[in-house]
Amino acid sequence: MNLPSDARNSSDPAHRALRFSHVAIVGKYQAPGARNAVDEIAHFLHEQGCDVSLERETALNTGLLQYPALDVSAMGKVCDLALVVGGDGTMLGIGRQLARYGLPLVGINQGRLGFITDVPFEAYREILPPILRGAYQEDARALMAAKVWRDGRCVFEATALNDVVVNRGGVASMIELRVEVDGHFVANQRADGLIIASPTGSTAYALSAGGPLLHPAIGGWVMVPIAPHTLSNRPVVVPEQSEIAVEIVSGKDASVNFDMQSLTSLLHGDRIVVRRSEYALRLLHPVGWSYFDTLRKKLHWNEGT
């Protein structure tokens, strides 16, 4: 049935042409029900007129081989949008890889918290159509680029969206860290470790260690000591242009991890250098989205009032 001309030209998002016509789906394929969820969303996208591809590991592990399977590089080059179906960990893993391509992402939450996968699975049919047609709010999240230097050589490097965490080993003793910001000595800290978190990561490990919540529009990092020996050693927020260097002075079996998804062991004298990455993650939210709505819901504020 043809629509009247006033309806075809309506500014209603439901009647607009697709802004994103080729959509890739990334699923948390290890989770129960993941196959059905990915397949259901893929069918829905076809109904909306989209071409659909699956991230290669998602396709192989769900057995949904009727859709084109793309690796990260191909997704970044040929797709207009990526839907991440899972939790924040799934978004962290794929977001770090796709950020360099400037591909926008929408997170559909099937995890527990969902600070950055904030579209409830049960509501995607109502929320996605306007986004697909260009009615959305965009939210850029800065990434951190980190390197481990040993004897003047870079022995490990990684990017992080949430945090870079220097930890002591399993031995019940503190480690001593020399901390510098932009080449200026800050302090020698004796603690269980140190968290360097982005505003995105301020709701993760840094929050449980007593760090502040940083709005994602704030350009800064927060350094949060883990169980410091000196109680006056408090979290510090520094500008995002800053370069933070952490040197291992003493302690056993220290390590550094990046978004809790990759790690490397450290030796005395190793330096972990963290600076802003040249890439940022593009997150899309429905119109009217508010960071404070997310905090209130996920942190259970105002319950019982």
Score class of each variant (00 low, 15 high):
residue 2 N to I: 02
residue 3 L to R: 09
residue 6 D to M: 05
residue 9 N to C: 00
residue 12 D to Q: 00
residue 13 P to W: 02
residue 16 R to P: 08
residue 17 A to F: 08
residue 18 L to D: 03
residue 20 F to E: 10
residue 20 F to I: 07
residue 21 S to W: 01
residue 22 H to S: 11
residue 23 V to R: 03
residue 26 V to I: 15
residue 26 V to P: 02
residue 29 Y to L: 08
residue 31 A to Q: 15
residue 32 P to L: 03
residue 32 P to C: 02
residue 35 R to Y: 02
residue 36 N to S: 11
residue 45 L to C: 07
residue 46 H to Y: 04
residue 48 Q to I: 07
residue 49 G to R: 07
residue 50 C to G: 04
residue 54 L to P: 05
residue 62 T to L: 09
residue 66 Q to C: 10
residue 69 A to L: 09
residue 73 S to R: 13
residue 82 A to E: 06
residue 83 L to W: 03
residue 83 L to R: 02
residue 88 D to R: 00
residue 91 M to P: 05
residue 94 I to E: 08
residue 95 G to S: 09
residue 98 L to W: 12
residue 102 G to M: 08
residue 103 L to I: 15
residue 106 V to T: 02
residue 108 I to L: 12
residue 113 L to F: 10
residue 114 G to V: 05
residue 115 F to Y: 14
residue 115 F to I: 04
residue 116 I to S: 04
residue 117 T to R: 00
residue 121 F to H: 10
residue 124 Y to W: 05
residue 135 A to H: 12
residue 138 E to M: 13
residue 140 A to H: 13
residue 141 R to S: 03
residue 142 A to R: 09
residue 145 A to R: 15
residue 148 V to Q: 08
residue 151 D to R: 14
residue 157 E to G: 07
residue 157 E to P: 00
residue 158 A to F: 11
residue 162 N to G: 08
residue 163 D to R: 05
residue 165 V to E: 10
residue 167 N to S: 12
residue 167 N to W: 10
residue 170 G to I: 05
residue 172 A to W: 04
residue 175 I to H: 07
residue 176 E to V: 14
residue 176 E to L: 04
residue 177 L to E: 05
residue 179 V to N: 09
residue 185 F to I: 07
residue 186 V to Y: 10
residue 189 Q to F: 12
residue 194 L to T: 02
residue 198 S to I: 01
residue 199 P to W: 13
residue 201 G to R: 08
residue 203 T to I: 03
residue 207 L to Q: 04
residue 208 S to E: 02
residue 208 S to C: 07
residue 210 G to H: 07
residue 211 G to Q: 04
residue 214 L to S: 06
residue 217 A to I: 09
residue 220 G to S: 14
residue 224 V to F: 09
residue 225 P to N: 12
residue 227 A to W: 03
residue 228 P to M: 10
residue 231 L to F: 06
residue 232 S to R: 09
residue 234 R to N: 01
residue 234 R to Q: 07
residue 239 P to R: 12
residue 239 P to Q: 02
residue 245 A to D: 00
residue 252 K to M: 11
residue 253 D to A: 15
residue 254 A to M: 10
residue 255 S to K: 12
residue 255 S to M: 13
residue 257 N to G: 06
residue 258 F to N: 05
residue 259 D to E: 12
residue 264 T to I: 14
residue 265 S to F: 12
residue 266 L to V: 03
residue 266 L to C: 10
residue 268 H to W: 10
residue 268 H to C: 06
residue 269 G to Q: 05
residue 271 R to T: 15
residue 272 I to N: 07
residue 277 S to I: 07
residue 279 Y to D: 15
residue 280 A to Q: 15
residue 283 L to M: 14
residue 285 H to R: 02
residue 286 P to G: 02
residue 294 T to K: 01
residue 297 K to I: 02
residue 297 K to V: 05
residue 297 K to A: 15
residue 298 K to R: 15
residue 305 T to A: 12
